[in-house]
């Protein structure tokens, strides 16, 4: 607020910790993402339990040293199911973001760069896509394609096309007006050379930041689809499906909901933090 200039008696060192604190957040976020990626790639390294085979007499065990996140109604190790569920969560979210990023970038870049009639048509399309609540759009797509995790990924990707397109369109419009783009024409560049040589590289950072943010949103939306039963059917080890399974036992065995839930929240939170760091250019 209205600044009070402090006149410190000794040496002031207020801004330094603040600076490192933000870096610390980014570091922790990066660590979480690294762990999650490692779970996705080599789940076997992190748990000796099987995600599918359960021991019936060991059902509903509370979290302990033997079962870090406890066990479910079939006596399956919840931690193992979370770890093995990571791959599907990460892969589907990756597919979703890939679709949204590719289609959205193409639409947005073309609309923003070429402008005029092209922009009028594509801009309308973006507006219409934005008018349909993203989650409902995903539901419609997944209903049309059939209930499966891959289809859920495609659906969530389709629902994020408009968000990407809008950002990249406005970025392309901004970059297009900068003097260095005009300069590129003056030194003999043609439209395509300028588009791919100057406009695209300069929208890269904000696209990357949005991609990371959308990655987290995709994890949430895909698991929400799974929660409602529009993903792959049980016994697939999927985070959203695990929460859905756990909700029937929430009263007596809350860890069935909390364990996969907290992992999911931490993952998305870490992605949001990375998004902030990227857009601030740190």
């Amino acid at each position: 607020m209205v600044a009070l200039s402090t006149v410190p008696r000794a040496r002031a060192r207020l801004s330094l910790p603040a600076l490192t604190l933000r870096n610390a957040y980014t570091l922790v976020a990066a660590l979480i993402i690294l762990v999650v990626l490692a779970w996705a790639i080599v789940p076997g390294l992190f748990t000796s339990h099987s995600p599918y085979a359960g021991i019936t007499r060991e059902q509903f065990q509370a979290p302990s040293g033997a079962h870090l996140f406890g066990t479910d109604q079939f006596g399956r190790d919840v931690f193992a199911r979370v770890v093995y569920g990571t791959r599907s969560a990460v892969l589907t979210a990756l597919v979703a973001v890939g679709i949204g990023l590719f289609a959205g970038s193409l639409i947005g870049l073309v609309a923003g760069f070429f402008g005029r009639a092209v922009d009028a048509v594509l801009g309308r399309l973006i507006d219409v896509l934005l008018a349909i609540p993203a989650f409902l759009l995903a539901v419609i797509v997944v209903v049309s394609l059939g209930f499966a995790t891959v289809n859920a990924a495609i659906a969530v990707g389709a629902s994020s096309v408009a968000v990407f397109a809008r950002l990249i369109r406005s970025e392309a419009l901004r970059v297009k007006g900068l003097p260095f783009v005009e300069s590129a024409y003056l030194v003999g560049g043609n439209k395509l050379q300028v588009l791919f040589g100057h406009v695209l590289p300069n929208t890269y950072r904000s696209v990357l930041a949005l991609g990371v943010l959308q990655f987290g949103i995709a994890i949430i939306n895909i698991s929400a689809l799974a929660f409602l039963g529009y993903g792959s059917p049980p016994p697939a080890a999927d985070w959203g499906l695990q929460v859905a399974n756990g909700k029937d036992f929430l009263y007596r065995y809350p860890w069935l909901v909390y364990a996969p839930g907290i992992v999911m929240v931490l993952t998305v939170l870490a992605l949001n933090q990375l998004n902030k760091s990227i857009s601030k250019g740190r």
Binding site: A3, L4, S5, T6, V7, R11, A12, S15, A18
Partner: peptide, 29 residues
């Protein structure tokens, strides 16, 4: 900005600014 006390609170300032005979750098906002 130092004279007008518009600096952020974490900025360190030393010295004196007298306005009309009154020290203002350490004056409360």
């Amino acid at each position: 900005n130092a004279i007008l006390k518009l600096l952020d609170s974490h900025v360190a300032v030393r010295g004196n600014v007298d306005f009309d005979g009154r020290e203002t750098l350490r004056l409360r906002e």
